[in-house]
Amino acid sequence: MPDGAAPVLDVRGLKTVFRTRGGEIHAVNSVSFHLKRGEVLGVVGESGSGKSVTMMSLIGLLPTPPAEVRAGTVMLDERDLLKISPEELRQVRGARIGFVFQDPMTSLNPVFTVGMQIMEPLREHMGMDKKQAETRAVELLELVGIPDARKRLKSYPHQFSGGMRQRVMIAIALACNPDVLIADEPTTALDVTIQAQILELVKELRKKLGMAIIWITHDLGVIANIADRVMVMYGGQVAEHGPVKELFADPRHPYTRALLKTIPSISGQREARLQVIEGQPPILNAAPTACPFRARCTHSHARCAAENPLRRAVDGTALGQGHDVACHWSPEAADA
C-alpha cells in the first residue's frame, strides 16, 4: 500500500511542555514520525505516554498556556504547521486534517442537530451553500452507514447510540475530504461488537477515499487489526516503531515485549499466570537525561541511567523508514 512517495505529513523533533505550578511537565520529547498517503499509523501507549498530546500539538489544539510546543517541525506538504498563523491553521483543521475524538458524546454539541454539525465545516471550509451542504451531509451519513440519512439530519446527538454517534463524528471529520485523519481512541468507549463495526467502516473508507490515518489507542489488538505501521510511545518518547507484522513478530524494546506478554490470549494456550510490568509509569517533571523505562525494565544497566537512548534502526533501513527502537539493550547481545 504505502509506496516510496513523499510523506503527506512529516513531524520532526516535536517537544511539548506543560507549565504547571509544580514545575514543567515534559509530555512530549523529540517525537519524529511521518505519514504516507493512504497508510494507517497506529500509535500505542499507556495514559500519560504522550500519544494524544503529540497529535494535539500538531494541529494547535492544546490550550496555550499551560502547554507550549517548544521545538520541532510539522510539515504538511510544504508548510510548517507550527509556524503558520492561527487563521491559516484553522483552515488546515477540518479541511486538510480531520479529527475523531474518544468520546462521541462530549465532542458533539448537544444543542445543535447532527445535520448542522456536519454542514458547518462544509459551509466554513468548502464555501457550499445550504442546499449543497445538505446534499453532501446526506452523502456523508450514508457513507458511514447511518440508515435513513436525510431524516436523521434533524436528530440531536442524544437520539443516537454510542456507535452511531461515533459514525457521525467520522462523517464530520471526513466532510472536507481531509488528507489526514487523526483518530484518538475512537473505539475505546464502544462495545466490542460496535468497535468491530467501526473498524470495518474505517478500513473500507480508507480503501475508498485513500486518506492517511493516525490511529491512537492503548489496545494492541486494535492496532494489530488496522495499522500498517506502529509507533509505541512511553514516557513522552517513541520507544519503538516499525511495520505492524515485524513489530508484533519481533518486538525489540523491552517495554513492547513486556506489553505483549501482559495481555491474556483469547485463543491457543491459556497462560497460567500473567506477566506483569512492575512499577508505575514515570512522572515527566524534568527533561529526560535517562531512559524513561529503566525503573521498570528487566534489562536496565548503568548506561540506561546515564544516557537517554536514541532511536536506532534494527533492520538496516534508514531511520524512521523501517523498524527502529530507542534502547541500549538488544536481544542478540543477551543471547551471546
Binding site: S161, G163, M164, D191, V192, T193, I194, Q195, A196, Q197, L199, E200, D219, L220, G221, V222, I223, A224, N225, V244, K245, F248, L260, I263, S265, I266, S267
Partner: peptide
C-alpha cells in the same frame, strides 16, 4: 460466537481473519 469473533487479537496475522460483524445496535 459473534462476541468472541469481535475481539481484536494482538497478532496481525490472526486479527485480520474473517469476523462476524453484527449489524445494528442492542
Amino acid at each position: 460466537e459473534a462476541l468472541l469473533s469481535a475481539v481484536n487479537e494482538p497478532d496481525p496475522n490472526r486479527a485480520r481473519r474473517e469476523r462476524i460483524i453484527l449489524t445494528g445496535d442492542v
